[in-house]
């Protein structure tokens, strides 16, 4: 009976007993969830527009951040005074690099693989992942780096709110992250639903052949959408890098975007956000209140289990369309 008490009653007693801790945990879940959602958003963009499940999105985040920091260092080495000028110059160059990456991916990977089964394209993005890891480390070195958040005029430090009978601390950078994510999601939703290119993108996702036959240029669409995903990746990289540091160990965390996608569905932008929040909050609550029962560290797999459970009941995700199989 003791174990049942520990699972079903005790955690809720703790929540009620210290509501400020609960709010703090929820907030941390929210922020983590937002960042998962951002990575998931990159996946969704590419999946919606090319039907490619881009496994490399997580690496693109790291690669973008690494490029930003690496270029900043190079610029300083070249005599540009450190500070906002060098930082923004580096930002522009990193954007350019993501553009070149999008272009290269289209040329080298996607174009020769048009009309191949989805699974082949999926595996090609594995190749891309490994290539980017090797390339990034080769150029910028494998050591963890500090994100140039201050130089990019991102706020730092924390604010404390008095609420729920205690204090809740929020990092300013997290608040900024939440705001930026919200703006980005709104913009992307608008882009997909209301613009001509957005509609073309959705057409391509449905069928490469059909899109080609009505005169949509796959090449352009893919470059555009991979570049957009690159921008999302860069944003994610900055936000995430500012919280910890920039290194390839981030890729394991980036994989958490996968359960997020499962919850939200592969094609839904709001789904990515809601899924991100569920996963983020779920895993922080789980780790904080139930983790000690299992010896903690359950954060590493809890997200996947939440997604798995969910899949068994709703295989098409929260916002995905129900698939009617034909034969």
């Amino acid at each position: 009976m003791d174990i049942l008490y520990k699972i079903f009653i005790d955690p809720f007693m703790q929540m009620g007993g210290a509501p400020d801790l609960l709010v703090q945990t929820l907030w941390e879940g929210l922020v983590a969830g937002m960042l998962y959602a951002l990575i998931a958003l990159g996946f969704v963009l590419i999946f919606k527009a090319s039907g490619v499940f881009n496994f490399a999105q997580g690496i693109m985040v790291v690669f973008a951040a690494l490029t930003l920091v690496g270029v900043y260092d190079l610029l300083r080495g070249a005599g540009v005074p450190s500070g906002w000028l060098a930082a923004y110059l580096a930002l522009a160059i990193a954007l350019g690099v993501m553009g070149i990456l999008a272009f290269a991916v289209e040329r080298v990977v996607l174009r020769p693989l048009v009309n191949q089964p989805d699974i082949i394209l999926f595996m090609a993005t594995f190749g891309l992942t490994y290539f980017l890891i090797g390339f990034g480390e080769f150029v910028f070195g494998g050591n963890p780096k500090r994100m140039i958040a201050g130089e990019l005029n991102l706020p730092s430090g924390a604010v404390e709110f008095k609420m729920a009978g205690g204090f809740v601390a929020m990092q300013k950078i997290d608040i900024a992250a939440v705001l930026i994510v919200s703006v980005m999601v709104a913009g992307l939703s608008f882009f997909f639903q209301r613009t001509r290119i957005g509609r073309a993108l959705r057409a391509v996702a449905d069928s490469h052949k059909a899109a080609l036959s009505v005169g949509i240029s796959l090449e352009q669409i893919w470059v555009v959408v991979w570049f957009a995903a690159g921008i999302v990746a860069l944003t994610t990289g900055i936000m995430w890098g500012a919280r910890s540091e920039v290194s390839f160990s981030l890729q394991i965390i980036a994989l958490k975007a996968l359960p997020v996608l499962i919850l939200g569905g592969f094609t839904s932008i709001p789904g990515a956000i809601v899924g991100g929040l569920i996963i983020g909050i779920g895993e922080k609550l789980g780790e904080f209140y139930w983790g000690p029962l299992l010896g903690s560290g359950i954060e590493s797999w809890l997200a996947y289990f939440i997604a798995l459970l969910f899949l068994l009941f709703r295989p098409q995700g929260l916002f995905g369309e129900k698939i009617i199989e034909r034969i």
Binding site: F126, G127, L128, T129, Y130, F131, L132, I133, G134, F135, E137, F138, G142
Partner: peptide, 8 residues
């Protein structure tokens, strides 16, 4: 690093 790139 080169191996990673080559494998990819």
């Amino acid at each position: 690093h080169l191996t990673f790139m080559a494998v990819g």
